[in-house]
Amino acid sequence: MRRAYFKFSWIAAALLAPQLLIVFVFFYWPSAQALYWAFTLEQPWGGGNTWVGFDNFRKVLSDAYYWSSVRVSVIYALATTVLAMSMALTLAIFVDRQLAGYKAYRVAIIWPYAVAAPAVGLAFQFVFNPGAGLFSYINTIAPGWWDLSKYPWQAVTAIVIAGAWKQVAYSFVFFLAALQSIPRSLTEAAAMDGARPLRRMMDLQLPLLTPTFFFLLVINITDSFTDSFGIVDTLTGGGPFRATDLMVYKIYADGFRGFDYSGAAAQSIILMLLVMALTFVQFRYIERRVHYT
């Protein structure tokens, strides 16, 4: 493997400094603060705190409801990622093949990414609301069948669809860029050898897409762990009976709404470790199958 070496230079350091400062102020400092709070009981209005060691972690990890929150977070992350990436890839292939109307939806598909998560949640309220939304038509045929406030699986499905819808745009842009960077000569050569579009996609385009695929997998999983708050808050509020109480939503509810800063800090640390572990696993085991050209 080739490696690049750079000589230390003051100009480079000066150019890097603002960026590093931002990373420090907005990431390392709060993380360090959270780590400290996680081992104490912090009084919200200041006035001191008590060192409690691993108590906060013990309390969180011994809570059965916390584990169900972890479980639903993992389900949510995997389901939104799979759904979003498969939809994005399908759409990107259509656009790449320049099927009818591709120019219009090449632009349209990028929009959802610019919509804030709470707005996505609100928009999907109009879709999923059992009394007035699009899904209420199901209830006119089978009364009471669709009710987010009653059936946990429906509530989870709703946030997964809303979350995936938001993620599609981002993945789409990357997939399309990757598809368009595949040299035309390769596709043409394959076509001359008699490979039809589906065969060309399976044997040629998808293998060449693996680096993009891997990158998007990591980003999407991380994003669905940390960026799901707004959707849950507006769509289900964590209910019914905690069924959609995702980890990041629980942190908000305990920390900000309930003033339990320390418990929330401990949960943040656990979430951070979980995301780091997942990313590590992906780099360790999935990246092996990725071929960079």
């Binding site: 209910g239 019914p240 009976f241 905690r242 509810a253 709404r257 309930g258």
Partner: peptide, 21 residues
């Protein structure tokens, strides 16, 4: 103390009871 969480616990549990869990 923790009144907001106590209310939230009450609500989540009562809803679970209404749902027959």
């Amino acid at each position: 103390g923790g009144m907001i969480q106590i209310r939230a616990e009450w609500l989540a549990e009562v809803e679970a009871a209404f749902a027959g869990q």
